[in-house]
């Protein structure tokens, strides 16, 4: 365990024991990573990260409520945090996708596939392009890239979140990168045009 992980675990232990200062400090410490995780996982909706940020807020509340049950058992605190966050993100995806299968009274109009002015204006948006590109990865590899790049977890903590060894994470992330590098030119060009 690194010094940073040990300090985080100690802070989490104090927070779990009811130390108010530790609770506040811990939430301030973990929130930015949770926001990036939700933004990377959910992507922008209607042109903004508002929905992802709302889900990030729910994640923080869920962690706050679960904190008294946290016990340091040698696993990084990140595993506790991002296991909860992953559940919330999945719930949000289900809530969103559940609405998509609502029956319609009549057949929808055929979609106009030509990009509109606003879409052309934001055609270079990175998150949209990356979302499309990451969608070509197997779920585990996609989650690894999100946790490693967007959140900034090291391989060891990423492995703890996903139930993998750090070595397995490193091999999987390397394969994911190789695949993304192969696919990037075609996928990004396709999204761009």
């Amino acid at each position: 365990m690194t010094a940073a992980e040990a300090a985080e675990a100690e802070l989490a232990r104090r927070a779990a024991d009811g130390d108010r200062d530790a609770v506040a400090a811990l939430m301030a410490h973990i929130r930015p990573g949770i926001v990036r995780y939700c933004r990377a996982s959910l992507g922008p909706v209607a042109g903004a990260f508002t929905t992802a940020d709302d889900v990030a807020q729910e994640c923080c509340l869920a962690i706050l409520r679960a904190l008294p049950r946290y016990r340091d058992q040698g696993r990084p605190f990140a595993a506790f945090v991002y296991t909860i966050a992953a559940r919330r993100v999945t719930d949000a995806q289900r809530a969103a996708s559940g609405t998509r299968v609502a029956p319609a009274d009549k057949l929808p109009e055929p979609a106009d596939r030509a990009p509109g002015p606003e879409q052309r204006a934001v055609a270079g948006d990175l998150t949209r392009r990356l979302s499309r590109l990451l969608g070509y990865l197997p779920p585990a590899q996609r989650e690894i890239i999100v946790l490693r790049v967007a959140v900034g977890l090291p391989a060891e903590e990423t492995g703890a979140v996903l139930g993998m060894s750090a070595g397995a994470v490193r091999v999987a992330q390397s394969r994911a990168l190789a695949r993304l590098r192969r696919l990037a030119p075609a996928v990004l060009e396709e999204v761009r045009t």
């Binding site: 990377a40 499309r132 969608g135 990865l137």
Partner: peptide, 25 residues
């Protein structure tokens, strides 16, 4: 930040389902 309404270019081919593209409305 992150303004990106994506044009619906996925007709006839669905990108791999997943979180990254899951709720892009």
């Amino acid at each position: 930040a992150g303004r990106s309404p994506a044009p619906d270019r996925g007709a006839g081919r669905s990108p791999a389902p997943g979180r990254a593209a899951g709720v892009s409305v």
